[in-house]
Design a protein around this nucleic acid. Structure first.
Lengths: 221, 221
DNA sequence: CGGGAGCTGTCAGCGTTTTGTCAGGTATGT
DNA sequence: ACATACCTGACAAAACGCTGACAGCTCCCG
């Protein structure tokens, strides 16, 4: 999945890129209105995240031009807080959703996912590896077809492993994903979560590669 | 696209006509409640803009009569400033949007366009999940076939959950939807609404996924 | 104009669930 | 066999969400 993030504040842009990549998307960023317009017009994205205040051409104009050209990818607009007119103009210009700044990254990712899925037309949001199935929309997990109750933290851990099912994920990376970088946690916290999960899941789901990290078993053992 | 503007102040009516025609719509105006009712009942409009204070029959009554007759065109109601009850009654009577007077013409046009666009892609009026049925036109809720009286806020919450019934909706998103971004609310306000709703609905309707958000139960448990 | 009713946000406190930490234990690789 | 990496169960703190009471507000009705 390819995402274009148009945002001229370099810090926010970097955060966007990080968060969306963590969510498994391929992300390109762009800080200029004209560039954005060109990119959106010529490349195929599954989603565009569009800030309104941009150099050379403002976001709304960019969006309108895209739509006028028949470009129909979903666009999530970032609006200034409380600026309701912006939202109205946004709808009018063809935006699919908005998010007022400032926003929490998790929420942005959630919306992004929703938009992508909607546009994909009914593509189910669930993925499986071996006996394990995750539905990131319902935030529910199935193990061998049986519903499994997981806590938020556990579920996020599983999702992350699912997302990167093709490789072994190092503990440091998991820690960072689960807790942001505010780490004041002992490294052991992660092990505790894994242990609790394994008790629920049974054996043969979460594998360990000693010295490297964790992975989901059963994909292509 | 055909628009009916019902407004008894000739100056505002003229402005409406001008603005909407500039936006590319075919506009008919009408200054009388009874005439409006007749027109809306017999002609096919893509949008009606409806002032509430009208001679011979007030706007709300007109709207209710239309809806009772199964007329489902989108209606944008013009309300007096700050008259919150009017807005509630408006929604209740089947309005799709409202605009407090005085308003800027650009905003009216933007909303009008949004409504027309939305109506182009809208499905049926009533939807169900489990025991809960919502009729968005009449703003009525049924629980197990029994009518349920909900407040405007409660109903909006339910509608939003219904709209996104395929996923778990995070509290932040609900807050934003319910209150716009004027937030000076405590996060707890949402919980209060949920609690009140649950008391009315009984158990097994609104579910919580701790750490993620709320959802309507019974869809495909 | 005043009382009353309905709606809704705030607050404080509660119970539950979640989760980090600790103190050992067990496996693994060299 | 030894050190290191990882696992586990128990515990306590913290987070989270729920609830009931209350007060402010608006609107309605006399």
């Amino acid at each position: 999945m390819r995402v274009l993030a148009v945002e001229d504040d370099p810090r926010i842009a970097a955060d966007l890129k990080t968060a969306l990549e963590a969510a498994g998307y391929r992300v390109e960023t762009c800080a200029d209105g004209l560039d954005a317009w060109f990119l959106g017009d010529t490349e195929d994205y599954d989603l565009v995240i569009l800030d309104l205040g941009l150099p050379h051409m403002d976001g709304l104009s960019v969006l309108k031009k895209w739509r006028a050209n028949g470009r129909e990818m979903p666009v999530l607009v970032l609006t200034a807080r409380g600026a309701w007119t912006e939202r109205v103009e946004g709808i009018d210009a063809g935006a699919d959703d908005y998010l007022p700044k400032p926003f929490r990254m998790e929420e942005l990712v959630a919306r992004a996912r929703a938009l992508i899925r909607r546009s994909a037309g009914r593509a189910s949001a669930s993925q499986s590896v071996g006996d394990l199935t995750l539905d990131t929309n319902r935030m529910s997990a199935l193990i061998g077809g049986v519903p499994l109750s997981t806590t938020a933290l556990e579920f996020r851990l599983l999702s992350y492993l699912m997302l990167h099912r093709d490789r072994v994920v190092p503990p440091t990376e998991l820690l960072e994903h689960l807790y942001g970088d505010d780490d004041s946690r002992e490294a052991n916290a992660l092990e505790a979560v894994i242990a609790r999960l394994r008790r629920k899941l049974g054996p043969g789901v979460i594998g360990t590669r000693r010295g490297f990290g964790y992975f989901l078993e059963g994909d292509a053992a």
